[in-house]
């Protein structure tokens, strides 16, 4: 364990140094991540204003709080690994990763953290600026904020495991773009990023219950906004744990099968 910790320390320091070199690009990429919630926030607050102040249990301030929190939750939980593996496998760069005595997922995770820590320097002022412009209203629940870090960590791990499993599809096909896109479409609708799930018809919300997406995005957001009862939160944590375990299992299965196939490639 302490061995792994020192590995992480090393990886983390290198990643941070690398990303500092590409700082301009980092900040440009951030623009897209900020625009999406911002656009939907504007759309939904327009709808709320037209419908006499609120829709689906959210008023103008409620939507502002929802999307600002969603932006931060997304930042905390997202990864871009599904775009990297296509290149790594096709170029053969993956071979050198396999030679290392640690599982390649560790360096990816360190990269992810380094990027997030680094970009936080921009996210915080942006979030403050947007909060000043859009006036969010929060319903602060002390207990919910207390358990929020657990929900965030579970959400991050679940999403990372699922993303990483998805990235492994590059072992089988060179057309990962279409697969990634399908994944992102499902994520957009079922996670609550497009709109709070209460704005969807009931049958849609039932489907969302059975998919992982809402539990890694909408659930932590609603928890942070104080919109859940302790009972609902408990159920949420249970489902999150279940999906995290499923993600870990999937990751191991797909990775093992993938490596075997990759070796076959090399002949």
């Amino acid at each position: 364990m302490s061995h792994l910790l020192s590995v992480y320390k090393g990886y983390f320091r290198t990643s941070l140094a690398v990303q500092f070199q590409y700082r301009a690009a980092m900040f440009i990429w951030l623009l897209g991540a900020i625009m999406e919630p911002l656009v939907y926030l504007v759309v939904w607050r327009t709808v709320a204003l037209q419908q006499g102040g609120s829709v689906g249990g959210y008023d103008v301030g409620g939507f502002a709080a929802y999307y600002l929190t969603m932006m931060l939750v997304n930042h905390f939980t997202f990864s871009w690994i599904m775009w990297e593996y296509d290149y790594r496998i096709r170029s053969g760069e993956f071979s050198s990763l396999l030679l290392k005595p640690v599982h390649p997922i560790h360096s990816d995770m360190a990269d992810n953290w380094a990027y997030k820590l680094f970009t936080l320097t921009l996210y915080v002022p942006v979030a403050i600026g947007l909060a000043w412009l859009f006036r969010p209203t929060w319903n602060v629940e002390g207990w919910a904020l207390l358990v929020l870090p657990v929900a965030l960590i579970l959400a991050f791990l679940t999403r990372f495991f699922l993303d990483w499993s998805l990235a492994m599809s590059a072992f089988w096909t060179t057309r990962v773009q279409a697969i990634n896109q399908a994944y992102f479409v499902a994520m957009l609708f079922f996670s609550g990023r497009l709109a709070p799930l209460t704005l969807f018809p009931p049958w849609f919300q039932r489907i969302a219950d059975f998919l992982p997406f809402r539990w890694v995005m909408a659930f932590p957001v609603e928890l942070a906004l104080g919109r859940l009862t302790p009972g609902q939160a408990l159920i949420g944590f249970g489902v999150q744990l279940g999906w995290m375990a499923a993600g870990l299992l999937l990751l191991n299965l797909v990775y093992r099968a993938g490596i075997r196939r990759y070796a076959a490639f090399g002949g």
């Binding site: 037209q50 704005l199 969807f200």
Partner: peptide
């Protein structure tokens, strides 16, 4: 189109 459907499920015009 799906996003439009969700929005217009709540209102009959957007701005």
């Amino acid at each position: 189109l799906g996003a439009l459907a969700v929005v217009f499920g709540q209102t009959d015009n957007l701005g």
